[in-house]
């Protein structure tokens, strides 16, 4: 029976080579811009609080103590502590872990590229993202598009993303035969945005060239700062290509007290939803308290980028071993 087991990789050997080339190019790209490559722990004593990101946890046995540790859903907190300690601009290529996420474009363990630029605002970060993709795709992509969340949402749904109205939202859902939306979303603005954006907007984004969507509603961003002119929106950007979400970035929140409030709100949400209880990252809060430099940062799913680079249809076709074979 043993040799009946499928021991073969999920991807071809050629894909392994293409992945290695992609990683090399990313490293050259950031080296040429004097962005320092760093490593931070995958196992941490604290976890994220986002109710939509489920962490893996384990127990560190140091008799007589048993300490819970968490696999990181992203290296964000540790990297911000480096920034607060004076690292300057940094990037990292590492594994990130999200429990329960598996599908065509999801694997619970995946490779992330995350970087932070000191003194960058969101527009400068978007410039750099465009340059990176220009390099990775050898200039084969069409001109990038930058559009606000509100504009793109209105274009594909006719709805106002910033001002929720149950009547107009549910009328749209009925017209589009999305009856499940009404049952699932109820009167939660953020659920409606997630639902309609996922099914009616996102599939249309980034065909031919990169699509950068900025100006997300404040209810959708826990780590971005608020826009100085419109407190309804945050300094957040999402990057799409061929209808696939590739990355998410912020002009980072540096206010420790505000960050703590958002953590507490999310912990309450987790409690209400009976989700596993997180351990708040006090060290991140202390670092923010001592001063995070003004910076912008973004994280990309590298397996998804490779999927599109290699013109494959699912993430498992570019992973050495997807979760089914891990």
């Amino acid at each position: 029976m043993q040799n009946q087991l499928n021991w073969q990789p999920s991807c071809s050997i050629e894909l392994l080579q293409q992945r290695a080339r992609m990683l090399q190019r990313i490293r050259v790209f950031f080296a040429s811009r004097n962005v320092l490559e760093v490593e931070t722990p995958l196992l941490s004593q604290a976890s994220g609080t986002d109710p939509n990101l489920e962490f893996f946890s384990t127990i560190y046995e140091t008799p007589p103590n048993r300490q819970p540790l968490f696999l990181q859903t992203s290296p964000e907190f540790a990297m911000k502590r480096l920034l607060a300690a004076g690292s300057g601009s940094i990037f990292q290529i590492c594994k990130a872990f999200r429990n329960g996420e598996a599908g065509r474009f999801h694997n619970p363990e995946f490779t992330m590229l995350e970087w932070y630029r000191v003194d960058f605002d969101l527009a400068q970060l978007m410039d750099e993202v465009e340059s990176l993709f220009e390099t990775l795709f050898d200039g084969q992509l069409g001109a990038p598009q930058r559009v606000s969340y509100q504009a793109i949402f209105e274009q594909f749904t006719g709805l106002d993303a910033l001002n929720f109205s149950w009547d107009t939202y549910s009328a749209f859902a009925k017209k589009e035969n999305l009856h499940d939306a009404i049952a699932i979303c109820g009167d939660s603005h953020v659920l409606w945005l997630d639902f309609l954006f996922s099914f009616c907007v996102q599939p249309n984004l980034g065909h031919g060239g990169l699509c950068l969507v900025y100006g997300y509603h404040a209810c959708q961003s826990s780590l971005a700062r608020l826009n100085s002119e419109n407190p309804l929106i945050t300094e957040r950007v999402e990057v799409f290509l061929n209808g696939v979400e590739l990355g998410n970035g912020y002009h980072e929140l540096t206010d420790a007290a505000e960050q703590n409030r958002r953590f507490e709100t999310e912990i309450q949400l987790r409690k209400t939803a009976s989700l596993p209880m997180p351990t708040k990252d006090e060290r991140l809060l202390a670092a923010l308290g001592s001063g995070l430099p003004n910076c912008a940062g973004i994280a990309f799913g590298l397996d998804r980028i490779l999927t599109l680079l290699a013109k494959k249809s699912s993430i498992s076709q570019v992973l050495s071993f997807d979760i089914e074979r891990a």
């Binding site: 939509n52 065509r104 999801h106 659920l191 945005l193 997630d194 996922s198 996102q202 998410n248």
Partner: peptide, 12 residues
């Protein structure tokens, strides 16, 4: 069965 999830949002 297709898993659809925005990076920072509700999974469907």
């Amino acid at each position: 069965n297709e898993f659809v999830k925005p990076g920072k949002g509700q999974a469907f």
